[in-house]
Design a protein around this nucleic acid. Sequence first.
DNA 1: ACGCCATCTAAGCGCTTGCTCAGCTTCGGG
DNA 2: CCCGAAGCTGAGCAAGCGCTTAGATGGCGT
Lengths: 211, 211
Amino acid sequence: MGTEAERNGEWAEVTPDAARRLLTAGVQAFAERGYHATTTRDIAGRAGMSPAALYIHYKTKEELLYRISSVGHRLALGILERARDGAGGPAERLADAVRHFVRWHAEHHTTARVVQYELGALGEEHYAEIVGLRRETDAAVRDIIEDGVRTGDFDVPDVRGTGLAVVSLCIDVARWFTSDGKRTPDEIGDLYAGLVLRMVGCTGHRPGDHR
Amino acid sequence: MGTEAERNGEWAEVTPDAARRLLTAGVQAFAERGYHATTTRDIAGRAGMSPAALYIHYKTKEELLYRISSVGHRLALGILERARDGAGGPAERLADAVRHFVRWHAEHHTTARVVQYELGALGEEHYAEIVGLRRETDAAVRDIIEDGVRTGDFDVPDVRGTGLAVVSLCIDVARWFTSDGKRTPDEIGDLYAGLVLRMVGCTGHRPGDHR
DNA sequence: ACGCCATCTAAGCGCTTGCTCAGCTTCGGG
DNA sequence: CCCGAAGCTGAGCAAGCGCTTAGATGGCGT
C-alpha cells in the first residue's frame, strides 16, 4: 500500500497520463541507478512505451529530471512551510516540521533520493532555480529556530549552523532508508523530532534563564 | 594549502606513482560529475596520460572506484575506532569521534563525496565488502553511545536509531560542504560535536536521575 | 463522411563510451 | 652491449547512448 500511495496523488498535477507514467518510471529508474546510468530506453520501457515516446512529452531526458526535481522540491518545501506557519509554540512547530519532513523522505524515499541527490545532473538554469527552492527550505527551518530562541524555548548558540544541520539530518534519511528495514517512517519521524528538540536545547520543561 | 594536503599522505599506500596520480584524478572527476558521468578519457587526461594508460594500473574503471572507496572507507573507519578506543569518558570520546569524523568529511570533501555517495556504482562483490566496512562504522559510534548509557553519562531511549542518526548527520557534511563557505572544517567539527552531545542527552554536568 | 491534430512506433543517425592491441620507449642486470 | 620486462601511446573496435524522422493509428469536431 505504501508503494501504491506513492503513485497516487503525488504527481496528480502532471498531465496527460502518459507524461505522468513516464515521470514515475523516471523516478524509479533514477532512484535505482542514478540519472547518468539510466537510459531513455529504460524509462520508456518501464512506462510501457517506445523510446521515442519520451520526446513527445519532454524535450530532453534532463527536462524529465527537472520536472521531477521541481515538483518534489515544492512538495518538500510545502511540508516545512505548513509546519512553520502552523499553530503552537516553537517546540511543537519544529517537532511537527521534522516529523513530517522526515516521514515524507522515508515514505517517498525513491522520489526523495532523486530530488535530493541527482540535482547535480540538472542544466545550469534549472539548477539555479532548484537551488533557490532549497534556500527557502533552509530558511523555513531557520525561521522556526529563531522563533524559539526569541521566546526562550530554545538555546542555540549558532542558529544558522544548527538549522543547516537539522535539514541535513532529515534529508539524509532518503539515502539510507529502505522499506524492508525494521523501522516505519512514523517511528523515524518521531525519533528524529525528539533528537532535533534536544539539538536546539529544548528540554521539554519551561526554559528558565541560561547562563 | 588545503588542496595540497589533500594529495599528500592520504594516498601514500597507493603505488606506483602513476597509479596514485590516476586515483587522485579519479577522485576529483567522480566528485565533480559522478562516476557514471565521468569518462576514462577525462580521468587519464587529468593525470596527464593517454586513455589506455589507465588499464595498465586498473583492470576497469569500476576497479578504480573500488580502490578509492576501499582506502577512503578504511581511513574514515580508523578515525572513529581511534576515538572509540581512546582515553577519557564516553562524552569526550563521542565528541572526539564526531569532531574528527566531521572534520575529515569537510577537509577531504571531494574524497568523502565519492566514498559516501558513489558506492552504488560498485560491482556486487566490491559493494558487499564496502557495506561490511560501513557496518563497522555504525558499530563504532554505537559502542561509544552504549558506553555512555551504561555509565549514565548519556540518556538515549533508542541507541541503535540515535547512532545511525549521528553517523548520518556526519556523513552528510560531505554533500553540502564547499571550501569557499564561511565555516572552516574545525568550526563545523566543534559545532557538530556539541549538537551530538545534546542528541545523546549529555548536559555537560553530572547526569543525575531522569524523569 | 472526412480531415486534422495529437499520440505513438520502427528504424536508424551521429556520436561517445569503456576497453584493446600492436608497437615504441626506457631502463636495470648480465 | 644487448635483452626482456614494464610503462605508455595512437589508433581504433564493438556497443550503447540521446535523440530524430517518416509514417501508422485513433478519436474528435464539423
